[in-house]
């Protein structure tokens, strides 16, 4: 029986042309309760993907353009003195939504970045000693321009670790690009999108994903991969335990999207570059090394 998200996948692929893998990964990230980091050049469809995803799953959507003068309060909200009541009242910021698109996150100063990352981790924000829970699900899609562009504050590794996956969209292939150019305006398409799943389907699906069976031999494989990253000569760090938890969660979601009740090594291999790519830092250059993930997958034997 196909899972409840196949119509959603089909609809997304109609809007975002030629990016089936990335679309599937983005959905997988959502199902695994992780946050997504899209890193690519401007104009390849990052915002469209985020927007389409939110619309298709039927979630409330907010977009915040991160700039160098964006302050935490602009994102989270601020307590304002009410003259008539004589009290402070909290005005919710744009973070109080289900899908938050943090556009060009590396343009904001570190203080604002960390405010967002805190919200991502805690699922709540605290202002003036009062905690305000964020809605559920809460899914952050951050986009980031390649770091060598000027005027950016690159995210430190510790904060990159908070994102379950990092994806690159890349240029579309010729046929897809042609279809896109010939077709309707993407923004209009997104605006017309209707939710392809029922309101509760996402939460149900997330619970089902949690139940996907992970066998001992598969954990052996995950640990073997982790050992390989940790003992790799060219890498500064290996994968953290949090990363491994994320890897398993993502692999579960991937298996679920494949209509299976158990995870197989191929699921791990499918999500591994997305989950591990931004966590592996090259020793020589100090930059993240997404290619190392692929190399490891080829080298580590499946127990």
């Amino acid at each position: 029986m196909p899972h409840s998200f196949s119509p959603a996948l089909a609809q997304l692929n109609r809007v975002i042309l030629g990016k089936e893998d990335q679309v599937r990964m983005a959905l997988c990230c959502l199902l695994a309760r992780g946050h997504l980091l899209l890193e690519d050049l401007p104009g390849v469809g990052k915002t469209t993907l985020a927007h389409a995803l939110a619309a298709t799953v039927g979630l409330r959507f907010q977009r915040v353009q991160f700039t160098s003068d964006l302050l935490p309060a602009d994102l989270i909200g601020v307590s304002i003195y009410q003259r008539d009541t004589g009290q402070f009242r909290f005005h919710h910021g744009p973070v109080f939504t289900q899908v938050l698109l943090a556009d060009e996150i590396n343009r904001a100063p570190p203080k604002t970045q960390s405010a967002l990352l805190e919200a991502m981790e805690e699922q709540q924000v605290t202002v003036d000693g009062t905690s305000y829970p964020l809605p559920e699900p809460f899914f952050v899609i951050a986009t980031q321009n390649p770091q060598h562009q000027i005027g950016t504050f690159p995210l430190p590794e510790s904060q990159l670790d908070r994102f379950l996956m990092r994806l690159e969209l890349g240029y579309p292939d010729g046929a897809a690009e042609r279809a896109m150019l010939a077709g309707e305006n993407r923004r209009d398409l997104v605006a017309q999108l209707r939710p392809a799943v029922e309101p509760n389907d996402l939460l149900t699906a997330q619970r089902e994903v949690d139940k996907v069976h992970v066998a001992g031999p598969l954990l052996d494989y995950v640990q073997a991969l982790a050992r390989a990253t940790r003992s790799h000569d060219a890498l500064s760090y290996g994968l953290s335990p949090r990363a491994l938890l994320g890897l398993i969660a993502a692999a579960r979601a991937w298996a679920w999207l494949d209509n299976r009740d158990h995870v197989i090594p191929e699921d791990v291999q499918a999500v591994f570059p997305g989950v591990a790519g931004h966590r592996l830092v090259q020793r020589a250059s100090g930059r993240v090394a997404p290619d190392a993930a692929l190399e490891l997958l080829r080298a580590v034997a499946i127990p």
Binding site: I264, P265, E266, A299, I302
Partner: peptide, 10 residues
């Protein structure tokens, strides 16, 4: 025969 990192399904 499978390559080192080749999964059973592949």
């Amino acid at each position: 025969s499978p390559h080192p990192g080749e999964g059973p399904r592949d």
